[in-house]
């Protein structure tokens, strides 16, 4: 059964079920449970927001405590300083992160769709072996790759360039796995055969027949890849030394190192680190809020099969 078919088949039944559930009254215990979870998962984020509104003094020695606002509401000055400090390097880091995440994410997803389709719909020599290799690769420790990748890219004179971040992040074996699983079910062979009978070439068949069917999985893999690239820290940390190319994670890491050693020339960076962390999580939070149906729809692929 295809996932698409599953969800559409379920939809009517589910709506009926939900309608009845809603009538069946309140669920006190589950709601208390959820409430506790929400509090737990939100406390650090609440703290981040509250801390962003404090000046440095309030941050470390404030009277109101860690989880409530200080007398002095300094969010706006903090933001102003964040965006102007060091000629606005923060905005550049944010832009870099966005660029790396989208370029790496889109690239990785395109490769994953092609490869997943290839694995799912073609028989060829070395297929099973390659696929086993692909799945095994998930277990490779990152540290084993960072050093040799650095050497490799420096041979190509690509270290300390955007390519050193984007090219390695094109590798997303799990994305290929998801696409393979999805494509195997969602694209009926009959459809492909029919297109071929009509004289369409393999690539035309793929783009015109298969790809539209793969779109839900495409979007899920895209989201996963983008989040993966956005959260990436150690790869860019090892590859980049030019601060102008840093993504936001490495930039904030740099600030943290400098703040811990007080290297900011007589003014504390901690306030910037905290408000910078807050601003940096906003884009992904918005993306999550606006794209949540794709998360739900797409993630079922990998888990159902």
């Amino acid at each position: 059964m295809t996932t698409a078919r599953i969800s559409s088949a379920n939809r009517t039944a589910r709506t009926a079920r939900e309608g009845r559930r809603a009538r069946s009254g309140s669920h006190l215990v589950p709601h208390l449970f959820l409430g506790a979870l929400v509090v737990y998962f939100l406390i650090p984020i609440w703290w981040l927001f509250v801390a962003s509104t404090k000046d440095v003094g309030g941050l470390f020695n404030g009277s109101a405590g860690a989880l409530w606002f200080d007398k002095n509401f300094a969010l706006w000055p903090n933001l102003a300083e964040l965006f102007t400090y060091n000629d606005g390097i923060y905005l550049r880091w944010l832009g870099n992160s966005l660029f790396y995440a989208l370029a790496g994410g889109i690239g990785a997803t395109v490769l994953a769709v092609l490869a997943g389709y290839g694995f799912a719909k073609f028989q060829f020599r070395g297929r099973n072996f390659s696929f086993a290799l692909l799945l095994g690769s998930v277990m490779v420790p990152l540290t084993a790759l960072v050093i040799p990748t650095f050497v490799l890219l420096s041979e190509l004179k690509l270290t300390d360039t955007i390519w050193a971040v984007i090219l390695p992040s094109l590798l997303n074996p799990f994305g290929v796995y998801l696409m393979q699983v999805y494509a195997a079910d969602a694209v009926p062979d009959e459809l492909l055969d029919a297109a071929r009978v009509d004289g369409a070439g393999e690539f035309r068949t793929f783009f015109q027949v298969a790809f539209p069917l793969l779109r839900p999985a495409f979007i899920t893999v895209l989201l996963l890849s983008i989040v993966g690239s956005w959260n990436n820290y150690f790869l860019p940390l090892a590859m980049l030394s030019n601060t102008q190319l840093f993504p936001i994670t490495v930039g904030i890491g740099l600030w943290e190192g400098l703040a811990a050693g007080n290297n900011s020339g007589g003014h504390s960076l901690w306030g910037l680190i905290i408000v910078g962390s807050l601003v940096s999580v906003i884009p992904l939070v918005i993306a999550f809020l606006s794209l949540q149906k794709y998360w739900r729809g797409g993630l079922a692929i990998g888990s159902l099969k």
Binding site: V110, L111, A112, L114, A115, Y117, G118, F119, K121, F122, Q123, F124, R127, S130, L134, S137, V140, A144, L145, I147, P148, T149, V151, L152, L167, P168, L170, L171, P173, V176, E202, F203, F206
Partner: peptide, 26 residues
């Protein structure tokens, strides 16, 4: 046939350059 490899090729190249080769070197 080899058509499958055409689809897998781009990913395979990335896989070899950024996973197999570094791993072998390591």
């Amino acid at each position: 046939s080899a058509t499958g490899w055409l689809f897998i090729g781009p990913f395979a190249i990335v896989f070899i350059i950024f996973l197999v080769a570094p791993l072998a070197y390591a």
